[in-house]
Design a protein around this nucleic acid. Structure first.
Lengths: 199, 199
DNA sequence: TCCATAAGTGAACAGGTTGTTCGAGAGGAG
DNA sequence: CTCCTCTCGAACAACCTGTTCACTTATGGA
């Protein structure tokens, strides 16, 4: 049997095909933005049969989300030791490196689902961080988390879209200055002890 | 001449047609959400010829934006006298009344451009309010405004989408508690005098 | 009332997209 | 070397968009 496909290591053809499609998507996103890219574009660029595409993915969205799992700067580690929202600066710096990509994904020609996906990841991470710092699980916590994530995403999008001009450090400063006081109040209310030492 | 059309008062047929299309759009949005609605849907529901539609609008987006100008709860008045971000509670209450509509516009089946449009309106309003309270126009101000608007929109969307449960009052409280401390710091830095009396 | 003119009709059109199917052929694993 | 899997490519139905055109209505000023 050729396709005795060990789950982690499929047929070489399969790898080649998927890689070609993913690669084509990245190229096209950078050229046109996410939304305008069509399946037809993809199969042309990847030089792959239409039926082949649908044998591997259901959507262009499926392609993207598959690729996105390999980009790991999306995962802020819930580091309860460092300063609050330590992920912020690192993220803005990563975004700067991948600016064209981020813009194509989150900006005007970006995709609704993509933003939603990013928001979900970040929401989970922020929630975990606050819990690790002693916040009590509550509806109110979720409100605060939503605010923080919304602010962060808005900054990122507006920046990638050139609506605002700033360095990553300035973005980080503004984000934390705006959001942290309120967050800290929540933390102090929830846990008797003072929150972690950091800034 | 029949269509001696005074600019403000067009032919009765024109009014009828446009109203029918706008009405159809609202109905369809409430039924399916914004994104899934097609021009074909619109002309069927409005019982209007396709060519007629394109004689009046370029897009379904054009229809929506035209209608949106009549909804006025989108315009927070820059009331420098009251408490900071006084628009918040009123808005959340309006959103509650129009919940189905807001959800259909901003939620999963909403439209990217719609969100962007709302953000633009709100951004201008918030910026004006902060300026009226003595903030200096600066890149940093824009960052703070972006944060605040992002937080507000995120709350609204998540709430309309039933991702979080709360009353308008609770939303208002959470929003202001999270964002205001940071904003106040900005205001105090910019203007020598203390910011307005309010909360 | 009359009727020239603007507005609406409905069908057809070219062009684009999606997702599916199927037989034939090429490639890999053992 | 052989057999099974994957890929090809073309064709397909279904849907959508925007535009055109000859024809019919309805409006509102004279």
């Amino acid at each position: 049997m050729p396709g005795n496909a060990a789950p982690g290591n499929p047929d070489r053809r399969v790898r080649r095909t998927r890689a070609a499609i993913r690669h084509a998507l990245m190229e096209l996103i950078l050229e046109k933005g996410y939304e305008p890219v069509t399946v037809t574009d993809l199969i042309n660029r990847a030089d792959v049969g239409r039926s082949t595409f649908y044998a591997h993915f259901t959507d262009k969205q499926a392609v993207l989300f598959g690729s996105l799992e390999e980009l790991d700067f999306l995962r802020p580690s819930p580091d309860a030791g460092g300063p609050l929202f330590a992920f912020s600066l690192a993220m803005f710096e990563h975004v700067q490196e991948q600016r064209r990509l981020v813009r194509a994904l989150l900006g005007r020609r970006g995709g609704r689902e993509v933003v939603a996906h990013g928001e979900r990841l970040l929401t989970a991470a922020v929630r975990d961080e606050l819990l690790a710092r002693g916040a009590a699980p509550s509806p109110h916590l979720d409100l605060v988390v939503t605010c923080a994530v919304g602010a962060f995403m808005a900054l990122t999008r507006a920046w990638a879209d050139d609506e605002i001009t700033a360095t990553p450090a300035e973005l980080d400063t503004a984000f934390r200055a705006t959001v942290i006081p309120g967050v800290r109040t929540l933390l102090e209310r929830d846990s008797g002890r003072r929150p972690s030492p950091a800034e």
